[in-house]
């Protein structure tokens, strides 16, 4: 028993020594997409018109260095939901997509930045060779990375409709 106690104590000590090593000085923080600034756009439930533009006004921040960001617009006629948005605006009735508008684009951020204000303009054409784009509920999806590969997503519910002919 004495022997057992001695041996177990010393082995346990060795185990603890092993277990207590820590990693140091690496980035453990995700970047941030700030849509609370003045003029922030787009915001949930905003309505935009085909033939005009959406401007992404946001403040991107990171503790070490920002990476890149991308913007994607896709239809939400089936009422799926993004994780980061609040579903509180009235959705139009569900419908089948025929010729929905699709937009996917990546944007660089100058190197060495820890904060970056965007004023990204996105054109909304009225249609393509198949005809006019479908109007209705769309998702405006932003994804931001930092240099180390941490990422943050933000999804915003918007409506894109054709401008009423006066």
């Amino acid at each position: 028993m004495k022997k057992f106690r001695k041996i177990s104590l010393s082995l346990f000590f060795v185990f603890l020594l092993f277990a207590c090593t820590q990693s140091e000085g690496i980035d453990m923080q995700k970047p941030e997409i700030d849509l609370t600034i003045q003029e922030a756009s787009p915001l949930n439930c905003n309505v935009f018109y085909f033939g005009e533009t959406i401007t992404l006004h946001s403040l991107l921040k990171d503790n070490v260095e920002l990476g890149t960001y991308s913007v994607e617009i896709h239809h939400n006629f089936d009422h799926h939901s993004h994780s980061t948005d609040v579903m509180n605006c009235d959705l139009l009735p569900k419908r089948k997509a025929e010729n929905p508008f699709v937009f996917i684009k990546g944007y660089g951020i100058p190197v060495g930045q820890t904060s970056h204000q965007t004023a990204t303009e996105i054109e909304l054409p009225t249609g393509n060779e198949l005809g006019l784009f479908d109007e209705g509920d769309y998702h405006f999806f932003i994804s931001l990375t930092d240099k180390q590969g941490w990422s943050t997503q933000k999804g915003i519910s918007i409506k894109i409709i054709h401008k009423p002919i006066d």
Partner: peptide, 18 residues
């Protein structure tokens, strides 16, 4: 599988590239 700072806008969905 290294998460990079880049986004794939051309081939997919604006996703982060690993």
């Amino acid at each position: 599988l290294n998460p990079t700072a880049n986004h794939d806008w051309l081939y997919g969905n604006g996703n982060q590239v690993f």
